[in-house]
Design a protein around this nucleic acid. Structure first.
Lengths: 146, 146
DNA sequence: GTACGTGCAAACGTTTTGCAGCGGG
DNA sequence: CCCGCTGCAAAACGTTTGCACGTAC
């Protein structure tokens, strides 16, 4: 059971969001969407695990399977972007949909957004015959100075 | 038991390689090193699974655990580089130690090297306070034109 | 001789799936 | 009313680990 209650206004906004993405307006999706997108000014980087914990803290009772399913659906629907930086620490999902890159701090398993305007890509090689460039992922791995 | 036999010359070369890396000259390591580095002109991108299959085909009988251990040791010793491109399909290890980037074809789970001389990076943002840039990974995701 | 490497199988953490029942449209 | 979503638990997957034995040095 979910103790977490959205205001009508919040629910309305999330419902639109889901509807646009072709997803039914179900309780877990509304609640998770709210967690993810409520403070849309700050980009968020969540893993399945971190979102699960966050949901529990907010008294949203959802199963792990639903977390995974929902994140994958949101990703497929274009509401989230998947970020691959490391094999240890799980998949990251990024609420920032704009073209951008990342600083990655392995020691802290933490991502920081880098607006793509701050990265000047001078020249890229042409893709091999028969292939077209899909996307460019730049990961700037950083370490704390000791 | 290993049916795979290295020529004295090959063995000598690999033995040097291992010794320099501070690793004992054991049979599985010699054999796997040979598989990985024999044709050093062509960079190789292997996963634990692909190397395991390759070893079996070459009548090298090693356990999976040894494949994983050996790959990790080679990586730690600087003989291989780990490449992160995707969460599905396992870790890639790259025999190309030089600074370079990758084309990645998700549909084929295939990597193609891009010499870093072919990528012109104009400008990068400064790392946050207290952090220093460690490495820059650029993945050019490409798709076959349909 | 001793510390390290190996094989085997079992453990591990993360993600997915099968199935019965609920709930949205 | 029907199809899709959910929860639960179990399976699947890639990787690591514990242990007894073997081997390089």
């Amino acid at each position: 059971m979910t103790l977490f209650i959205l205001s009508p206004l919040q629910e309305e906004k999330m419902a639109q969001c889901l509807h646009q993405a072709g997803l039914r307006k179900t309780m877990p999706r509304l609640a998770l969407a709210h967690l993810l997108f409520a403070a849309k000014t700050t980009p968020r980087h969540v893993t399945a695990e971190s979102l699960f914990e966050e949901a529990k803290s907010a008294n949203i009772c959802v199963s792990q399977a639903t977390i995974y399913n929902t994140l994958n659906q949101f990703r497929d629907a274009g509401l989230l972007r998947e970020v691959v930086v490391d094999h240890n620490g799980g998949h990251y999902f990024d609420t920032n949909l704009e073209a951008h890159h990342h600083f990655y701090i392995e020691e802290e398993a933490r991502l920081i957004d880098v607006p793509h305007t701050q990265v000047a890509l001078g020249h890229l090689p042409p893709p091999p015959q028969g292939y077209a460039l899909d996307s460019v992922d730049i990961t700037l791995r950083i370490k704390s100075k000791t």
